[in-house]
Amino acid sequence: MPSTASPRVSSLSRQNRGPAAAADNRRALIAAAREVYAEGGLGAPFSAVAKRAGVGQGSLYRHFPDRTALAVAVFEDNVRGLEDDTAPADRTIDDLLDLVVEQAVVSTAFIELITADLRDPRVAGLGARFHDLVARVVERDRDAGRIGGHVETEDVTMATGMLATELARSDPAQRPAVAARARALFRAAFAPR
Rank of each mutant, 00 (worst) to 15 (best):
P2A: 05
P2I: 05
S3I: 04
S3L: 08
T4G: 08
A5G: 04
S6W: 05
R8N: 00
V9Q: 10
V9D: 14
S10Q: 09
L12P: 00
L12S: 06
S13Q: 13
N16I: 09
R17L: 15
R17H: 07
G18C: 05
A23R: 12
A23C: 00
D24M: 01
R26T: 05
R26C: 01
R27L: 13
A28P: 07
A28H: 10
R34E: 15
E39S: 14
E39I: 08
L42R: 10
L42V: 09
G43Q: 09
A44N: 11
A44Y: 10
F46R: 14
S47P: 01
S47D: 15
S47V: 14
A48F: 07
A48S: 15
R52E: 15
A53F: 12
G56H: 13
G58I: 00
S59G: 07
R62G: 01
R62N: 11
H63E: 14
H63R: 00
D66M: 07
D66I: 03
R67N: 03
R67D: 02
A71N: 10
A71W: 02
A73Q: 05
V74P: 05
F75Q: 08
F75D: 13
R80V: 02
G81H: 12
A87D: 09
D90Q: 14
T92N: 05
I93Q: 09
I93V: 15
D94R: 11
D95N: 15
L96R: 08
L97W: 06
D98Y: 09
V100L: 09
V101N: 11
E102W: 02
E102M: 07
Q103C: 04
A104R: 06
V106W: 05
S107P: 00
T108Q: 14
E112I: 00
L113P: 02
I114E: 06
A116S: 15
A116L: 08
A116G: 13
D117G: 00
D117V: 00
G125V: 01
F130A: 12
F130K: 08
H131A: 12
H131M: 03
D132I: 00
V137C: 11
E139P: 02
R140W: 11
R140K: 08
R142H: 06
R146K: 04
I147T: 03
I147Y: 01
G148L: 01
G148N: 06
G149Y: 00
G149L: 00
H150P: 02
V151D: 05
E152H: 15
T153K: 07
T153S: 09
E154V: 13
D155I: 03
D155Y: 02
V156Q: 14
T157P: 01
T157I: 07
A159H: 12
A159E: 14
G161V: 01
M162H: 11
T165S: 15
T165G: 12
E166N: 02
A168L: 03
S170W: 09
R175T: 04
A177T: 07
A180W: 04
A180C: 02
R183Y: 04
R183G: 02
R183M: 03
R183H: 11
L185G: 08
A189C: 06
F190W: 09
F190R: 02
A191D: 03
P192R: 00
